[in-house]
Design a protein around this nucleic acid. Sequence first.
DNA 1: TTGCATCCGGTACCTGGGTACAGGCTTACC
DNA 2: GGTAAGCCTGTACCCAGGTACCGGATGCAA
Lengths: 151, 151
Amino acid sequence: MNGLRSSQVADAAGVNRQTLRYYERRGLLAEPQRSLGGHRLYPAETVTVLLVIKAAQRLGFTLDEVADLLDAGRHHHGRRPDTGLQARAKTKLAEVEAKIADLRAIADSLRAAVDAGCDDMVTCAGQSGCPIPFTTIAATEARGDTEAHDR
Amino acid sequence: MNGLRSSQVADAAGVNRQTLRYYERRGLLAEPQRSLGGHRLYPAETVTVLLVIKAAQRLGFTLDEVADLLDAGRHHHGRRPDTGLQARAKTKLAEVEAKIADLRAIADSLRAAVDAGCDDMVTCAGQSGCPIPFTTIAATEARGDTEAHDR
DNA sequence: TTGCATCCGGTACCTGGGTACAGGCTTACC
DNA sequence: GGTAAGCCTGTACCCAGGTACCGGATGCAA
């Protein structure tokens, strides 16, 4: 009666029904009320929460981070300035910008390979004049893991 | 005697020894010769091949794609213009550029959230004037999977 | 009250790129 | 020839973020 069935919520938010259970396990969704028979009955806001989760993921936050953010939003009393969305968004922004810079370097290398007309990596790597900086490129790899993670 | 031991190759290329076996299974490295006792003996070029693999990964190619590319390079006779490094590099470049554009949109959203001083996603999402395009952002998700995949 | 759609919980599986471990053989050096 | 380091195979596990399947129970309309 009052409350949405899991499928309704899932459909409205564009996610899989299993995902609701998964998010519940992960602490992203509160445990909803149940019908007498044990079926979940969600409040309407849940759809919004799901959209927010998806948006946050798209912004580069992991599910753990999203869980934290939702939590931080729920009880505002913590009030340390480094836990809120503000601070985290700034951090994430820096990460995304680093990632963009990194991808630009990658694009440059690809462009160089195309421009040079090189067609076989291994032989090309052995010759001087190969535009792809094989040795450096592997080292540069480092660890800029920021994954804006589109699914 | 003649040939490098697996650890020597792994160390020289900066990869794990297990990774050599893994690449062998995946078809990225040819099966090397063996000593009488069954130990692998690699030719010196293997190190170059590994560096090339790492570089290609960093350029955004998956291991399957790298395997194909190495193969394409090995026997040049196929000669269809769409199988070589050239064509694939172009495709990959377009993907990387799309990814960059996508990340820029994400960075813009993060910047907007910071500028607007919004501090709780869920309540903010409900109010008009929220700078984060929650509904659209989730839909935009689509599938721009290009993962330059560092790590 | 029957019948069908939906939902339940638990568990297993997927992708990609590796890494780790166990138990046993080889190699190299003294 | 002894012994330690190195290597072998096979198998299992890691990460994140889900997805799929199963047998059984519920919900709801006619």
